[in-house]
Write a protein that binds this DNA or RNA. Structure first.
Lengths: 343, 343
DNA sequence: CTGTTAGCGCCTTCAC
DNA sequence: GTGAAGGCGCTAACAG
């Protein structure tokens, strides 16, 4: 007579294929075959097994299955920050693309931190995701190459040498160029650039585009008009407020993303300046909310939802060994009502 | 001599405890004991094993481990919609609370659909999450009770009879009451309510609160001032635009969430009405962006980030068998600049 | 077509 | 303290 663990700790064992097999009077392999459709099974046995599964409420054990097959039918998604509306919209596209497939997304944030991002990646790999989708990354190239050697990897917003075929990145520089040129065409000459984090790749590209547009139009690149933010509202608000207080004259602002544009917008409001009558304002990303700001924001559109779909579809193809190519997406200037001709 | 599968399909086997054991000259049980600290092991063997693990880059197999122990060290999080800024902020709180624990969040969207939500829940359970956190739910009470019988469940934004101790829900009615009363105190008498989906519980509660405030102040409940939206901008915009075109007079709008307030704001703008000079506007939720609208939005604040932390902490306690109680949170009216005294 | 037989990588008694 | 042996639930050859 064996001593048993206290009842409270006894593992609740589920019903297994053994139980189903016994109930249906067949062997476990037959049950397995029916579950996975991996071979033809006589009609009568199939029915018996199906009835047994039904009656017992059988559910195959995911862990045992994955342990055997090596496939978990899940796709890891790690965004710098789930909360950012920009990434959120990409995630929406990914989720929708996966909805009608047997794969499930598993999403986490990297919190803009190498430590946390690394941990998230390791955890996902540890959990045996079949593929990994990185939306932005703070990790160095070699770390990403290492990750790619361990699991199929597709990246957004970053081009890693050696992984080009699986990196989707749009021409940020061109987007910024379009935005800045738009302002110049409206007659603006003193254009503030509210840039993103000093080391972030997209932020750098956008700054380049801004400068290039100035240069191409014989306008000076003025350090006093280049501000640095953090892709969120508050620091942008502060930075622009500070600039306004120094009384450096300008007539337009190009913010490196929509959230910073919102911060800038409020700073202008605080100083009694109207958009677009006193100052024109352009953002970047076209997050969903930007169509509803007052006035609706002129911005550079990244088709984030479709990008998400494209990323997911491509990764799925790769995971399943199908030939695939990442689709190309274009940045475009969406002219709404926050910009106008300089009077 | 056995035939082997083609090299290309050969599973890349990782290094297992067997390899470590061999390398260290001990048995696999000893290795297991060291990994889990489940028993004392002689110092020299411990060192040998640790060296071997290091040298081989050993990583325990999550699936095998979970298959044995029944614990996956993961917490499922299912939000109606990850993309909604409201839920996103709750998720942020959850992620942060879990950061310093051995548990990892696994987040998915229910897409405001019973089908998808059910699928997400089943998938998570199938993946053996140790606990489940539902942020909103479209499922009927009995379905949720059933889920709770299979896995530790904590809910936000919904009170399920029989699960009260694990349901966190704030007094939506009171929040709406505060908002409406604020408008009334400012002198408004014709107050439009831009409500949420007709069947959604929070939406209903908020509508009740709105009506109650009117009644308590001897103001009539007027069906022509009650609009229905969908918790997003576009339908709200349309609805209010339509109302404005029917020329029903009103001086204030109470929207059932901030996103609808943004839609309403644009409709007013389109008709040349200024906020708050011509019309006062109040929202609900206080999503991060609302502090940066023009003018900054008066709204009912739900401390979403802290709620997320509270939910996660409680669930963790439950999962680990510690006594725990869900913290209580208060709704509060944040008065910013979108409301003013009726002239 | 179907049953038998090995494992997948790990944890956990059970003897020593 | 430590090793051997037996599963966890399932898939995948291998023989019939």
């Amino acid at each position: 007579m064996k001593a048993r663990a206290p009842a409270a700790i006894v593992k609740k064992r589920g019903v297994t294929i053994h139980a189903v097999a016994r109930q249906a009077g067949v062997s476990i392999s037959t049950v397995s075959r029916i579950i996975n459709g991996s071979a033809y099974v006589a009609e009568d046995k199939r029915r018996a097994v199906e009835a047994a599964m039904q009656a017992l409420g059988f559910q195959p054990n995911y862990l045992a299955k994955t342990l055997m097959t090596g496939r978990s039918m899940s796709i890891g998604v790690i965004a710098e920050d789930i909360v950012s509306p920009h990434y959120a919209d990409v995630i929406r596209g990914i989720e929708h693309a996966l909805l009608d497939t047997p794969y499930n997304p598993v999403v986490n944030s990297g919190h803009w931190s190498r430590t946390y991002e690394t941990r998230a990646i390791e955890t996902q790999i540890y959990r045996h995701v079949d593929g990994l989708l990185l939306l932005g990354s703070t990790l160095p190239d070699d770390a990403l190459l290492d990750v790619a050697s361990r699991v199929p990897l597709v990246m957004f917003g970053r081009v890693v040498p050696g992984l080009e075929a699986h990196c989707l990145s749009m021409d940020q520089r061109r987007g910024a160029y379009l935005a800045t040129r738009h302002l110049i065409e409206l007659g603006h000459r003193a254009i503030v650039h509210l840039g993103g984090p000093a080391l972030q790749q997209d932020a750098l590209e956008r700054r380049h585009g801004y400068r290039q547009a100035l240069l191409d139009n014989d306008l000076p690149v003025r350090p006093d008009l280049e501000l640095t933010g953090d892709f969120i509202e508050q620091p942008a608000y502060q930075a622009l407020l500070h600039l306004l207080e120094t009384r450096v004259p300008f007539t337009a602002v190009f913010a490196a993303n929509d959230q910073m544009a919102a911060g800038a917008r409020l700073a202008l409001h605080r100083k009694g300046l109207r958009v677009p009558d006193d100052v024109s304002l352009v953002g970047f990303d076209d997050v969903p909310a930007s169509a509803y700001t007052i006035p609706p924001l002129t911005t550079v559109r990244q088709p984030t939802y479709h990008i998400g779909q494209g990323l997911a579809t491509h990764l799925l193809n790769v995971v399943q060994g199908r030939p695939s190519q990442l689709p190309a997406f274009e940045l475009s200037l969406v002219i709404r009502e926050s910009t106008r001709v300089l009077r």
